[in-house]
Write a protein that binds this DNA or RNA. Sequence first.
DNA 1: GATTAAAGTGAACGCCGTAAACATAGAGGT
DNA 2: ACCTCTATGTTTACGGCGTTCACTTTAATC
Lengths: 196, 196
Amino acid sequence: MSTSPEAYHHGNLRDALLAAGLAALEGAEGKAPSLRELARVVGVSATAVYRHFPDKQALDAALARAGLDLLGKEQAAAAERAGGGSQGFTETGRTYVRFALAHPALFRLMFTQGHPVDGSATPDEAYALLTANSRALVGDPDGAETLALQSWAMVHGIAMLMLDGRIPADDALIERLLDTGNLSAQSCGSSSEESP
Amino acid sequence: MSTSPEAYHHGNLRDALLAAGLAALEGAEGKAPSLRELARVVGVSATAVYRHFPDKQALDAALARAGLDLLGKEQAAAAERAGGGSQGFTETGRTYVRFALAHPALFRLMFTQGHPVDGSATPDEAYALLTANSRALVGDPDGAETLALQSWAMVHGIAMLMLDGRIPADDALIERLLDTGNLSAQSCGSSSEESP
DNA sequence: GATTAAAGTGAACGCCGTAAACATAGAGGT
DNA sequence: ACCTCTATGTTTACGGCGTTCACTTTAATC
């Protein structure tokens, strides 16, 4: 029962299935891989999968979890690269949207399970990073949570709408939408603009 | 070939299928209805569906379109009830999120097609209302479009995250997130809060 | 009334997720 | 060394799905 990357004929079918799943989600745009297809790719009968996952939904959840971890890592790296602070905060959001566009099928899978994808295990690096960063920016705990959730909703909405083709998946547009300074125009500044 | 609501044995199977589809999407939480199931409900063989829709995707697209129209009507009514202006604008967003929570399966279907659900036909009342309202609020066309898209992304993100159980589908939380005044704290006001 | 095109039917195909019964191999105890 | 047991895999089978094809029926048209 080694978890090492040995041959899997006896070894870790589970990891092989997840790897095949992630690979399938990258290619062949939009199509979620079937359980049988993954088994085929890995060279195993379809029912063998059930020795490692109770059902397809569990397999999907594991894939979603893997995707979530990947996203968390990319965001952490991006935030560090940007040097934290509000600069890093924005960069985290940018990375979120970019991730969705770079891995559309995986991203959809991640957020299309009916329920939060687990709750146990390691508790979602991406979300931890988000709350930590916004707490660092705001101070007031309630305000920090609100900012965190609003930011999440914003980038998630941008990502989803772009994935669904409702708004163009344009880099410039991402930048424009990520800049939330104007959103407050109706509530914190004058309602007239800088144009004459 | 009457479009009137007559018997459908010969008559409008198409509308009957759409009605059955919308009904199915309301009950039995989360599950998207199958083509065969809808045919069964309507009392017709599965293949009869193909006389009215080229494939299942087209049926789904039609259902999505119907959902979009419904959303648009509810938003328009809500905006009018609130008396337009920035009050009506916010109300439109609130209605968007409420609609998603009230019709989760339909809402998911609406935004889960790969592509924008058509583009032809009547051009999406919801979106028209959104841009019109934000143009009324901002004046500057570019700024208006940005505000429109940001607002859309925000409410869409809130809706999606709540549907997926990532954040609690809580009425109070909706209100808190809809109030975007604080979002600009980092760019338009002081970074200190009103608490001592 | 005969013709014709639209609308509905039934059987069949290959895919899917899943269940049940069976096979095999490697670990552990004796 | 042997036997056993458990983890892991296989085969076969079931019902549901979307879709195709060849067919019948029905209502509208000349």
